[in-house]
């Protein structure tokens, strides 16, 4: 039970998010967003989670290149997998929100386009892997591509959208990320936002962990059948 504490933590953090996310006081400002600003606790953590999962995937890919092992490769694959899941959920929840806030699910906003491109680059990681039969080659070229895919997040998500006008907060004329800049987010929302980010990310880690264990079992089964 001791080593499962982080799963319990994920549960508690998300239960906190899903109740306090609705109960916490929100600033009204000009009331354009009304209650929909509460999406900050659900839509935005998908992207934070995606970045953290892709980041972990990157670490395992680098580790693989230093020390090639099935474990390192599978961790990299499964973290990227869950990262894509979070990214798709981020796009879909963003489109729902945008439909009511900006009048259309897809406005070709710099951040929407950038995120879509970033996800396509990650999808290509799986296409590339699927195209190779040699396991070692697949893992090695996959690891190199995964490093490239992560660094493509810099232009597609972190730099280019901030250089142009954007419907999102944090476009041209505002500094950095409005979610992180302490003074931009109301204190009452900050105490829900950060637990939400860590809760959703931990959920992603749990899913990844399960998928990893399942893949290891599969590998074992195949190896047993070969003998």
């Amino acid at each position: 039970m001791v080593k499962h504490w982080w799963k319990l933590l994920a549960f508690l953090l998300l239960m906190y998010t899903c109740t306090m996310g609705f109960l916490v006081e929100i600033p009204r400002l000009d009331d354009r967003l009304q209650e929909s600003i509460r999406n900050l606790f659900f839509h935005v953590p998908m992207w934070f989670g995606m970045m953290l999962l892709f980041g972990t995937s990157l670490v395992y890919s680098i580790k693989y290149l230093y020390k090639p092992s099935l474990q390192n490769d599978l961790w990299a694959v499964e973290f990227a997998n869950t990262g894509i899941l979070f990214g798709i959920l981020g796009l879909v929840t963003g489109a729902i929100w945008a439909n009511y806030q900006w009048g259309a699910p897809w406005s070709g906003d710099a951040k929407q386009n950038g995120a879509a491109i970033a996800l396509l680059i990650y999808l290509a990681y799986f296409v590339l892997r699927g195209a190779m039969n040699d396991e070692e080659k697949k893992a090695r070229i996959g690891a190199v591509y995964n490093i490239f895919a992560f660094f493509m997040l810099f232009p597609t998500i972190w730099i280019l959208p901030r250089l142009t006008e954007s419907l999102h907060p944090g476009g041209q004329g505002s500094e950095g990320n409005p979610g992180i800049n302490g003074s931009d987010l109301a204190p009452s929302m900050r105490i829900v936002f950060w637990p939400a980010v860590f809760g959703w990310t931990l959920l992603g880690v749990w899913i990844t962990h399960l998928r990893y264990r399942w893949r290891i079992l599969q590998e074992k089964k195949w190896n047993d059948e070969k003998i």
């Binding site: 549960f11 998300l14 239960m15 899903c18």
Partner: peptide, 13 residues
């Protein structure tokens, strides 16, 4: 909506 969300997340866990 909160009750629905809590139920879904609880179910997922």
């Amino acid at each position: 909506v909160m009750a629905v969300v809590v139920t879904i997340v609880f179910g997922l866990f």
